[in-house]
C-alpha cells in the first residue's frame, strides 16, 4: 500500500515548522514518528498534500525536572519515556504506560506528542494526561499557550490544536508517592486497548478511560463518587456514566461498558482508592 503523493518539507527548527504549516494550507500535516499518520496514509484514510517533518527536532526530545512537575518534550519517543530514570521516579504511571504501547519497534519511533496530538480515543497516553491533569504547551505564529489536558480533546481525532500550532511540551504533576494503576485489556499483545483505565489517587482521584467514547475521556462519574466517599466497587458502577462507548469489530459498546466497570474496580483497588 502506497500513500498518495504529497510535498515533503523537513523543518530544522520549531519556528520553521510553524511557518511551513502556515504556508502549507488546510491539508498540511506535521509528521513526528509517523506511527499513527503513515498507516492512515497507506490506507488512504488520510491524504495530506504537504507533510512537515518535525522528526529531527531533537531539541523537542527531553525530560526536565520543573520542580512540582516533569516537562516532557513532544518529540520524546515512547522508548525514551519508558527508560527515563526521572520519569520512573517522579511519574511512574507515565513510564509504565509508555512501555505498554504497541511493541518495541513502535516504541522506537512513536512520540509522546504524536500520541496526544492525534487525539485517538484508543491511545493510552491521553488517558494518563487526563487522569494526572497534565498541561499541554502549544506553540503557534503568535506565541505559546497552555491548555489543560482536560480541555484538549474535543472530538474524534479532534483537539484544541489550531491548524498552524505545534504541541511542544507536556507537563505532568509529580506523583510524590501517590498510588496509581493502569489497566489495559487487549486480545493480542501488541494491540491497542479494547478498554483501558488510568487511575491515580493524589489527594483527590483522577480516573480516565481509553476507548470508551469518541475521544479520550475522564470517568467523571467515578471521580464524583469517590469524592463523595464511595468504595471502589460502588464508584466503578459509574464507569460509563454519560458515555456512549463505540461498537466495532473487537467489541460491542455493551461489552465495553461491562469491561469498564471491571477494569475501573481493579484500578481503584490497586491504587488504593
Amino acid at each position: 500500500m502506497i500513500p498518495s503523493s504529497f510535498e515533503y518539507r523537513r523543518a530544522s527548527s520549531l519556528a520553521e515548522a510553524i511557518t511551513m504549516l502556515g504556508e502549507g494550507g488546510d491539508d498540511a500535516k506535521l509528521l513526528a514518528g509517523g506511527h499513527s499518520l503513515l498507516p492512515l496514509m497507506k490506507l488512504r484514510l488520510a491524504s495530506p498534500t504537504v507533510l512537515v517533518d518535525i522528526g529531527r527536532l531533537r531539541e523537542l526530545s527531553y525530560v526536565r525536572d520543573g520542580g512540582d512537575h516533569l516537562a516532557v518534550g513532544a518529540l520524546t519517543r515512547h522508548a525514551d519515556v519508558h527508560n527515563s530514570d526521572v520519569v520512573g521516579r517522579e511519574v511512574p504511571l507515565l513510564a509504565h504506560v509508555a512501555g505498554q504501547i504497541g511493541d518495541p519497534q513502535v516504541r522506537h519511533r512513536g512520540t509522546i506528542g504524536g500520541s496526544i496530538a492525534h487525539g485517538d480515543p484508543a491511545s493510552d497516553l491521553p488517558a494518563v494526561c487526563l487522569a494526572l491533569r497534565a498541561t499541554l504547551l502549544l506553540a503557534g505564529p503568535s506565541g505559546e499557550r497552555q491548555v489543560p489536558a482536560i480541555e484538549f480533546f474535543t472530538g474524534f481525532l479532534e483537539t484544541a490544536l489550531a491548524r498552524d500550532e505545534v504541541l511542544t511540551e507536556i507537563r505532568f504533576p509529580k506523583l510524590g508517592g501517590a498510588r496509581w494503576s493502569f489497566q489495559k485489556f487487549n486480545v493480542r499483545a501488541q494491540d491497542w486497548a479494547i478498554v483501558g483505565v488510568a487511575a491515580v489517587r493524589n489527594g483527590s482521584a483522577g480516573v480516565a478511560l481509553v476507548n470508551m467514547a469518541d475521544r479520550p475521556v475522564l470517568a467523571t462519574g467515578v471521580e464524583a463518587a469517590l469524592a463523595a466517599g464511595a468504595s471502589p466497587e460502588e464508584a466503578a458502577a459509574h464507569a460509563s456514566d454519560g458515555l456512549e462507548p463505540p461498537s466495532d469489530v473487537r467489541a460491542s459498546g455493551e461489552y465495553r461498558r461491562h469491561l469498564a466497570t471491571v477494569l475501573v474496580r481493579r484500578a481503584l483497588e490497586e491504587a488504593g482508592a
Partner: peptide, 8 residues
C-alpha cells in the same frame, strides 16, 4: 529495531 513499512 524499526518496521520499515511504517517509515518513509
Amino acid at each position: 529495531s524499526v518496521k520499515s513499512c511504517t517509515m518513509l
